[in-house]
Amino acid sequence: MHEQYMERFFSGDPLAASRLMSIVERGAEEGEAVLDAIFPKVGRAYRIGVTGLTGAGKSSLINKLSCSYRREVERVGVVAVDPTSPFSGGALLGDRIRMSDARGDAGIFIRSVASRGSETGLSACANELADVLDAFGSDVIFLETIGVGQLEYKVRFSVHTTLVVLVPEAGDDIQSLKSGLMEIGDVFIVNKADRAHGDRYADDLRSMLELRRPAQGWRPLVVPTVAVKGGGIPELVDAIGRHKSFLERNGGIEQKRIEALRNRIAMVAEEKLKDLFWNDRRIAQALDALFPEVLNGAKSPYQAARELVAALSIGKQGG
């Protein structure tokens, strides 16, 4: 069914883009067919990941940033992820509401998506949705993660610049920040900086980052903002711009592209392998046979796993 949309998509019809994203969300062969078809057009957009704790103001920042970028570029895309309820499978996708300035502008395409059990802080298909927006001609794309701890850092894999959003209360003690967060940020935002200790927090953060060895020669920047009021947004745009030129000077853009594509192939292949593995009748049979032995202590889980994998290759050779 995607064919009916392709031509309209390439001629800039937002409804076609939206419908194609739904097909991608549903996955399966149809979804991959869309991704195949758009791939030649993917790769033009500058991708910005936005991560940080819940309530730090990620959506409000994207709201102001996307409006700011829109003054210079034709199209901005936003993929905003909210958590799926583990109980009902439903979700309240609340990011859009906080993008009140952006949503009146047809040049800003906001797509909300539920995490649907993905552990990465991104939805299983957030990167793919960004691809659709990329091929649709977005110049800048924001990927917003849900703030869920360590695993969200995978956001970095498919973006050019990673913004980490913090608030002064997030633990007045900078030292207590998760080290993972400190390592992935290209730009650190101290949002709600007009609160008590906002300045001191930003200073502490700066001095702490100075102690670290800059990764690949980039020393992360710290920008205080008051997103709801638009405070610090020009400075933030400037900081992102500086990181972008840094990447451009050092071949970082190409390097990121290579990494992202490698990662994507690996991830997709792993997924497929997993599907293949668990859908294989031989594996099911072997597991049925092995499991009682693990239960009664005759075999360790490791032994069983080795034999399970072996069953696949033996079967192959035999077949």
């Binding site: 409000s60 509401i97 906080r98 009140s100 300035d101 709801v228």
Partner: peptide, 10 residues
């Protein structure tokens, strides 16, 4: 003064 937009929490 600017305009107020409510933060969305629900």
């Amino acid at each position: 003064f600017g305009e107020y937009r409510e933060p969305a929490y629900f």
